[in-house]
Design a protein around this nucleic acid. Structure first.
Lengths: 333, 333
DNA sequence: CTGAAAGCGCTTACAG
DNA sequence: CTGAAAGCGCTTACAG
């Protein structure tokens, strides 16, 4: 039996079924202003009877709004799953957007091809704006989006675009200073740091904060925000400076890797080496020992991210928001 | 300085700039059939000069195609990140769709509100179809989508909809039989199982396969596909049957939880208790000992998932695909 | 409160 | 190979 693919009902069918004009149906659908109770009732019934659902393309064509927003993860896909920070951010943004009845679409732009597809998808009007997560400096995505006047806001300073693209960040530099000071105050005499990726603002700012307190001679190992990277960096640090007694690691995930390296080298944490992380991400609670870290205000960050994006969509000028971090003392330092 | 929000160039502007009609421009944009080399060159230049990008809403309005597909995760968001299977599936589907130049949008339908938003988003035509992942029986989402004739294919048998919604699955029952047999053959005399969520096909089919081999009297503890659930189930099993020497756990993630419970009870794996998992998910390699498990053919599954969906979008009748699993022997049994 | 009409930006037969 | 024209399904002033 061939089931005839039935045509979807349109606003025209609803108008016919309810005995009013298409304009009136449309008005009813869009808030019900200027439609009499009688008409409203008839339309409501007709919608139900016909099974009408708006055609979003038609609507968007005239309103130029899609009521959806992209969450662009400009990272290899593995990172999305490895780093709980993204999860937290995604969750926060979804919640904040839901309040405005806006749909959040996760889009992964891991490699060149993905980036192109994502860029095309977004510039051709599918979404009203984009949240760009984890933008490395020199990322062409941001240029492309800007070039097409797509509202975009980034989490973290968009290096090289601080003036023209709005963003929200934690006060990375001050956070790093505070943690470094804490580690030194509790007795650290020989302190080092493991940095984040140095083409991101979190990477450079946390390193700068560290140096401002620990001095420019303090040992530095470059990390990349992954667990494996943190572990490798810790091994290098230990090889070069066996007498280390404190280390500030620029992310909790890397710190969990550093903890492994430390354990394997036979050192106790915090007795032999104190470890301070950054993020207060979910991993901080699952390491042994639990991580002392700088809390990023995730909920607030995602709220502000969304608020800013909506403002920009509504035509506001780009602006930036910086939020303070907070020391959370647990067991690793 | 107020920057005038400039109007985006339309096909009309390109036509004007290149001296041909809009129809010709459109033909060029859609494959270039029936347009002379001269016209093509002029249009190409005009596109570049004007910075033209197609308006997807307008295009979709007439073609009724959006060239995007939703990946609906009908689970609490945490699960996306906890269970690596989703990651693998998402990755595979993204890749397979990319070959057809179709964009995959991840959408999380964790709670009632999310479901409503997702359902509305999808039924209003934003996407051409949907991949429904982890459908629990009784999930209204599937009804809604079907009601609006949205092409949807599920991974796992959609309990209660086997006839009308296409799906792809591994041969869960045979896989479970094989693993159970393996565990018994290598010496298991007192064997038990930890099931998946019993409102999913994986849950019921693997349990059935287990029973067919181990008998209906063998101990069963109900799990829910989470690590914590697997651990708790193992604890219950151990309390009730301290003499267990083998357990078939219906997912690797749960098995990793079971391993924890086993270790805490002082039992050695596999010497005291042999553990067989299911999935061959990435966790299987990171447990200690590494998991012996049934491999689900993830790459093939996602390829078939995509192939089926595209077929259904093109009007094919619903059908089902079942793929075999494979025993992978490692250290836990 | 309501309807007729224009218009959003495209694609696609159709006639040439 | 090309252009004129109809139409996709909506919203939104506008006039009543």
């Amino acid at each position: 039996m061939v089931t005839q693919k039935r045509r979807r009902p349109t606003i025209h069918d609803v108008a016919a079924a309810s005995g009013v004009s298409r304009g009136t149906v449309s008005r009813f659908l869009n808030g019900g202003h200027n439609v009499s109770p009688g008409a409203a009732k008839a339309i409501q019934k007709a919608v139900k009877d016909t099974g009408y659902v708006v055609n979003q393309h038609a609507r968007s064509l005239v309103t130029s709004r899609s009521h959806s927003v992209a969450f662009i993860l400009a990272e290899p896909q593995e990172r999305l799953f490895e780093d709980p920070n993204f999860n937290v951010l995604l969750h926060g943004a979804t919640r904040a957007l839901a309040e405005h009845d806006i749909m959040l679409l996760l889009t992964i732009a891991g490699n060149i091809d993905d980036r192109k597809r994502v860029s095309r998808y977004i510039t051709s009007g599918h979404v009203d704006g984009a949240l760009l997560v984890s933008s490395h400096s020199g990322d062409p995505l941001i240029e492309e989006l800007r070039g097409q006047d797509i509202p975009v806001v980034t989490i973290g300073r968009p290096l090289g675009h601080e003036g023209d693209v709005p963003y929200v960040v934690s006060d990375d530099r001050e956070g790093a200073r505070q943690m470094t000071r804490y580690l030194m105050d509790r007795g650290g005499r020989k302190i080092a740091t493991i940095t984040g990726a140095l083409d991101t603002s979190g990477g450079v700012d946390r390193l700068q904060g560290f140096r401002e307190v620990a001095g420019h001679g303090a040992p530095v190992a470059e990390g990349d925000y992954t667990l494996a990277g943190g572990r490798a960096a810790m091994e290098r640090l230990l090889a070069a400076h066996p007498d280390l007694d404190a280390v500030f690691v620029a992310s909790d995930l890397m710190a969990s890797g550093a903890l492994i390296a430390l354990r394997e080298s036979g050192r106790r944490v915090p007795e032999d080496v104190a470890v301070g992380g950054f993020d207060d991400s979910p991993v901080a609670m699952s390491t042994a020992p639990k991580l002392t870290t700088m809390r990023q205000p995730w909920t607030q960050l995602s709220r502000e991210l969304v608020r800013l994006l909506l403002a920009v969509i509504d035509g506001a000028e780009p602006s930036a928001i910086m939020l303070p971090t907070q020391l959370v003392v647990r067991d690793s330092a």
